[in-house]
Simulated assay, not measured.
Amino acid sequence: MIFKRRTWLLGLFYVIVFLILYFLLKIRAQLFSILSPFIIAIAFAYLLNPLVNFVQKKGVGRFYSVLLVYLLFIGLIVILGWSVIPTIVDETSKLVSDLPDYAEQVQKIVKNFRESSKNQLPESINNIINQNINRIEDIAIHSLQKISSIVINFFSRFLNIIIVPILAFYFLKDKDEFKRRITLLIPQKWRTEILEISTSVDKVLGSYIRGQILVATFVGGSTAIGLYLLDVKYALVIGLIAGIVDVIPYFGPVIGAVPAMIVAFIQQPIKALWVLILIAIIQQLESGIVSPKIIGSSVGLHPVAIILSLFIGGSFFGVVGMILAVPFTATIKVIGTHLMNYIVD
C-alpha cells in the first residue's frame, strides 16, 4: 500500500514538473520579457538581504535597514558613476562599432593561414585542418555577433534598470508580509511540510545566488584589471562580459575568454598567449579557492546533473536558460527530496 502510494505521488510529481516545463517552453519569449526584471530583482534582493538582516539585528527597523543599505549601495553606484561607468559606456560604443572590422580581420587571418599551409602539408591533413578551422572561424564570428547583441541588450534595457531596484526594495522591505500572506493561502494540513520545503529552497537559492554574484564579481574585476595591465583594448567591457557569463557553470569561463582572446590576438598575436595565461590563472583561483569558499556545495548537485541541466536550459531557453538551469534544477531536487521523505514517512 505504501509502495503504491509512493509510486503514484512520485509519478504525479514528475508529470506536474513535465507539464510546467512544457507550458514554460511554449510561452518562453513572453515569459522572459515579463519576468526578467522580477527575476533580477529577486537575485538582487537575495544579495542584499544578509546586509539588511545585519542592520536590523542592531535594533534598526526593517524599513530603515533597507533604506540604509540602499543609500550605501547608491553611494557605491555614484562613485562608480564618476570613475568607471563613463569608461564602460565609451568602450562599449567603440567595441560595438569595431566588431564588424574584427570579424573581417578574423576571416583574413583564417584565409592567410590556409594559404600558407596549403603547399606545406599533405592534402589529407589540409582537409582536416580546413574543417576544424571552419568550425573555429564560425565560433569566433558567432561569438563576436553574440557579444554585440549582449552588450546592446544590456545597455538598452534602461526601463529594467529603473524597475529592478524598486522591486527589490519592496521584496526586502515586505519580506515577512509576503511570507505571512503566502502562508495563509496554504491549507493547514500541508502548511508545515510546504514551509519546510520553502525554507530549504530559500536556503539553497540564497547561498547559490549570492555566491555566484560574488564569484562573478571577482572574475569580472580580475579579468578587467589583468587585461588593462596587458594593455588589451576594451578591458572593462570584456571584464564585464566575463563576469556576466561566469554565472553559467563550466561553460561561462570559456564564453568569456573568447572576446578577450580575439581582441588580444588582433592587437598583437603574442598578447593572446598572455591573455590565455591570465584567464587560466583567474579560473584556477576561482575553481580552487574562491568558489569553494563562497559557494561550496550549496546546490548539492552532481556535475553530470549540472551539465545536463545546462544543455537542456541552453537548448530551449538560450543563455538565460543556462543561467537559470542550475538554481531551477536545485529547486526541483529539494522539492523531490522532501516529497520522497514525506512519502516514506
Rank of each mutant, 00 (worst) to 15 (best):
S36M: 15
N126S: 09
V17A: 11
I186S: 01
V290W: 04
I295G: 03
L12V: 07
F317H: 03
I186K: 01
V304N: 12
F158M: 06
A224I: 05
L68S: 09
S117M: 12
A330G: 04
I248T: 06
V290M: 06
L214H: 03
V232Y: 00
G296E: 01
M340G: 06
L48M: 05
R114W: 01
T223C: 07
A264D: 04
I255V: 11
V215S: 06
I27R: 12
L229F: 14
I162W: 01
F158L: 12
S198N: 12
L236W: 04
D138P: 00
A272W: 05
V215I: 10
V69S: 01
S124A: 13
W8C: 13
I266M: 07
L121I: 14
I225L: 13
V78K: 05
P259V: 00
I128A: 13
Y64T: 14
F169I: 00
I150L: 08
V219F: 00
L76W: 05
I323C: 01
K58A: 13
W190H: 14
I197R: 06
I209C: 04
A242Y: 04
K111W: 09
V237E: 05
N132C: 07
K175H: 08
L99I: 15
Q131F: 15
D174A: 07
L159V: 09
G336D: 12
V344I: 14
L51R: 08
N127G: 02
S309M: 04
L310Y: 00
L227P: 06
I289G: 02
R114G: 05
I282W: 01
Y234T: 05
F18T: 13
V96E: 04
M261F: 09
G226M: 08
R62M: 10
N153H: 06
W190R: 14
W274H: 13
V320R: 12
L276K: 09
K57G: 11
D231H: 13
S200C: 11
